[in-house]
Amino acid sequence: MKIKLSKAYLDNVVFQDFTLEIVDHKINIVIGPSGCGKTTLLECIANISDYDGEIIPKVEKIGYVFQEDRLFPYLTILKNLLIINDDVNKVNYLLQQFNVEYLKHKYPHQISGGEKQRIALIRAFLRDNELILMDEPFKSLDYHLKYNLVEMIYKLYEKTNKTIILVTHDLDITLYLGHYIHVLSLKKPKLKATLENNFVAQALNNESILLLNELKALMV
């Protein structure tokens, strides 16, 4: 997927002729400091924010995991998923797979933040989406819940082989999940570097620590 776009909020120019190449069927991590336009980038790709430029190919079917769960508060968890895909068997299968079947008759206010985020993640993978966007899905989760969600994302990726674009601040998650790491900056050039990571879903080793150090240097 090739992205070329310009985007401004009144006088604040976020992207000026910004180009980025997303690698299909891989996990692409977008990392960078606050305010560099990570969320805006996802919103443009999802077509929920106006922009100048083009994204080729135009993706119609998108799954989106927002920073907050964004579940419909007046529907049960099951109904929240069924309005996205009415295939009950698929919904039940995914709920079982991720050990959250016990939540299906509850309302969002009756479950915890971590559980809500897991449901939001299942929702993104429910339809036959070509692209999955994730905007800091680990925000406000504790360490344990965060790594549950990381494992869940990786399992879903392995099962579906979808193209994933994940925005995060976490270097350790970036290293664990990202096949490709796109580092953005506040200044020009907006795209500082794109790194390839051969250590996905592995524990830290000597070589991956080198990559981590390279990432840390880019983030300064």
């Binding site: 999802a46 077509n47 998108i62 907050e68």
Partner: peptide, 16 residues
Amino acid sequence: VKLIAVTNVYRFSLKQ
């Protein structure tokens, strides 16, 4: 507005 974004991303029909 956050839920409006969800309905746009998941392409809800007008009825939905």
